[in-house]
Design a protein around this nucleic acid. Sequence first.
RNA 1: GGCGCGGUACCCAAGUGGUAAGGGAGAGGUCUGCAAAACCUUUAUGCGUCGGUUCGAUUCCGACCCGCGCCUCCA
Length: 494
Amino acid sequence: MALRLYNTMSSQVEDFQTIRDKEVRMYACGPTVYDYGHIGNFRTFLAVDMLQRFLRQSGYSVRYVMNITDVDDKIIRNAARDGVSVQQYTAKYEKAFLEDSAMIGIQQPTLVRATDHIPQMADFVARLVEKDIAYRTDDGSYYFRIAKFPAYGKLSKKDFGGMIDSARVEFDEYDKDSARDFALWKAPKPGEAFWSTSIGAGRPGWHLECSVMSMEELGETFDLHAGGEDLVFPHHENEIAQSESLTGKMFARFWFHVRFLLVEGEKMSKSLGNFFTLRDLVLKGHKPSSIRYLLTSVPYRNQLNFTFDGLKQAAVSVDRLRNFRQRLNCGNFSPGSNPEMQSLATETTDRMKAALEDDLNTAQAQAAIFEMVRRANAALDSNAVQKEDIPSLLAALEKFDDIFAVLNDDDAAKMKQVFEWAPTEGRDKDIGAELRDAVQFAQLSGADIENKIAEMEAARRSRNFKSSDALRTELTTAGIIIENTKDGVRWRRK
RNA sequence: GGCGCGGUACCCAAGUGGUAAGGGAGAGGUCUGCAAAACCUUUAUGCGUCGGUUCGAUUCCGACCCGCGCCUCCA
């Protein structure tokens, strides 16, 4: 078996084959850095992150490039509103994006910025003009002539046959040959940021940067291009048009699109009051690992209903996995190995691989790991797990976590960052009691806790349950969960 | 209107032409000084509705109802 992925271009699940053996060159459309990223953005980036992780786990070397769109209408407008330069404005949100990505466990791709590629973009337009594929309008803007690219619409399955030859239309403020022609380069408007280039002053249109930067980084034809489902049209369609009409070659082989999510059953929107940035959720006290788990638990092509109930459930599920790992790490086991445990680990690894190879079916991969957890826990209860089984079971768990990345408990440290950030943006009032608690709990050092536990254990040994229970309550109140096992006391943070 | 996706238990959510993964929640039980963790049992004769094809459909086909997406820069 090998990886099979849905390709938007063919509308089918296909065998994933790379141009170069065992090397994947992929590009994802990243954020426009005009505000903090919301959970919808992160669902998409997380899906691509999982794909990238799985490709590496499958033995590919991966060149993964993501763009940062740091110039567009909204950015220019907001920067002007705030009285800062475009660079100052975007630097803040780019930084926030990187912090948020790290917080939610995204492995950082090679990042490229639109504004670092202005000359290349101008050059790209000039070459299109030479081929008469692009044209300049009176105001100094440049447009792509869709009539020159008959395959236009092949990705989004749209038929533009009837419109392409329409007469020259006066279209609002612009002077396009056809209403469907799209802007490659926009002439400057009074008071707006612009760049002086070989094709004149102005700024790039939205689609241009992705064609220019992806080809510069990955070559004229690369393996996979990813983004949110909304980008199929017009963004990716336009990228294909401009790139392929310039090179005469196929632009990207696979098109990977992530479905939008719903929040509490409805489309996420500010007017509905169900619009959440990642930081909004952490401010409410939700753990980054819970958010990551929930956002990755539904396969990327299915609609995911993001709910607060689901977030709670995700937290419990993650705890279950973490408890299991701790149980494996802390117990005392007799020497030898149990063939049943060995084959359980192997079966689980195989099932996870098969699930992910099937168009990244994350839900089934989770089912496989939980099946293992349940069966191994049962075996642990009956002392059927032996010393040499531990590495095998842990290896399967690690294989899972290479992709899902929720086991490492650094939630408190991440939440602390958000806690400290809040006042800098006047968001103190949004800090929830749960976040406050989580941050406070993190202050207690491991040594402090161990000391309390030793005290508690001493009381228990002398059967002074009243005093030991008091100590446990004290720790519980501080967010420490105590478990007395036959191998001694285990503790963990809530 | 055009193109596309989906409706599965209390909640989230996989999946299959032969009778329903997994997680959470609930109930009962085991273990425990009490907890916690863990385990066991249990919770859809049912997979939007109505027809059709079939020995057999939740899975295929058709109609309808509902939700969602794209169709001028929203991941």
